[in-house]
Design a binder for these strands. Structure first.
Lengths: 214, 214
DNA sequence: CAATCTATCTATTGATCTATAGAATCCGGC
DNA sequence: GCCGGATTCTATAGATCAATAGATAGATTG
């Protein structure tokens, strides 16, 4: 979202200005550093000093950019979860079979690991440490996301494409669990790349490991 | 400061054994409390004070039972992973089909959640914060465990029971990922019970979500 | 009863961490 | 070349935390 906002009617004299782009870029650098540290050492294991070290500034200077460590975590988590819902909704809205949707959902879930790994990891592993208010915000987004997946599964069952005894919620949790764990080991003495994993995981979900696989 | 060695010669045969059972029971209570706190708040989020509070003793008193917080984490993690290897090996050694073995592996992995949930959770989520030496010990056990799973998958492929293109390592990671996530939500506003989840998850792995399911 | 052992306590140290206050510096536009 | 806001710094308060040292109460033993 980058709509450059025009000054509302009464911004009185002073012009809101050219520094805005720089400001925004720096903000994002700060958040990148926070995400990196949170993802690597966990929220409580990470100190604001660690974040400052990455940026080459003093620890106290960080507080120019966020009012508390908890808020920094909230922002990182929000950036980690944002996009999941939209991407999934897009897949779910397509005119394709439920199987193809499941495949798309897996791909969409793993894709952000390519360009926002630290944010996603932090969202997945550290959101539990958010203060209640923040947790609610983040929880709202992730629950909406899960509902999209569940609905795809239910449709698949209703249409007869998926097995009848399947529990949609449990199935969703299985999908999320498989994908979540990928964040933990991808790019770590592993030869695997994201698209390959998405392909194989989607296939396991759809056909199992048996020979039936299409 | 640890007594690297016992008094050389004079260990004196007389056994003051009577206290041993109580001693051991207390040790285990201490570890239970540590596991509970580590599982709930994470290693860095948990203070030794929190552990002491559960037990109703003073924080400093804990150090009668373990020499450092890190060692407490090591012990909890070891208790969390121990048994996995044996249980899996047992399943793998049976004279049953590879499919039945996979089902048994899932059940064996989820079973400890019934009676050692806090230890297993801590092992799964906090082992990354172990100091290098401890991490190596724990890593050794868990890698051996993973190898057992991988081997079962490879056998299934070799025997033609499983699909040929399957990557055994990736398949193992998928199984572990699915099961790991269960620890995070089981018994939390969920109607699901462990055996039910094991049943469904094994089925998803074996037959996928398609109608093919046995 | 005396000696020893076990388990816990009190008291404290030093390190580390988040956050605040206010001063200094940088930089673009005039 | 100076002004004003943007950005970073210094210094420090205040809290918490892991860990150590030494004392002590209660049980066990001899």
């Amino acid at each position: 979202m980058k709509t450059r906002r025009k000054p509302e009617l009464q911004v009185v004299g002073t012009s809101p200005r050219a520094s805005a782009p720089n400001q925004r870029r720096r903000q994002s650098e700060i958040l990148d550093a926070a995400a990196k540290v949170f993802a690597q050492r966990g929220y409580y294991g990470a100190s604001t000093q660690d974040i400052a070290d990455i940026l080459g500034i003093k620890q106290a200077s960080l507080y120019y950019y966020f009012p508390s460590k908890e808020i920094a975590l909230e922002r990182v988590c929000l950036k980690g979860v944002e996009g999941f819902f939209e991407a999934a909704s897009e897949v779910a809205a397509k005119k394709i079979t439920a199987s193809e949707k499941v495949r798309g959902l897996v791909e969409a879930h793993l894709a952000p690991l390519l360009d926002r790994a630290d944010f996603v990891k932090t969202f997945l592993n550290e959101r539990q440490y958010l203060p209640p208010v923040s947790r609610k915000k983040v929880g709202k987004l992730s629950r909406a996301y899960e509902k999209v997946i569940e609905k795809v599964v239910m449709e698949g069952i209703a249409s007869g494409e998926f097995r009848k005894g399947l529990d949609p919620r449990l199935m969703t949790l299985a999908l999320l669990g498989m994908c979540k764990s990928v964040a933990a080991w991808i790019g770590k003495e592993n030869p695997y790349k994201v698209p390959e994993v998405a392909e194989q995981y989607a296939r396991i979900l759809l056909a199992g490991i048996g020979k039936a696989g299409r």
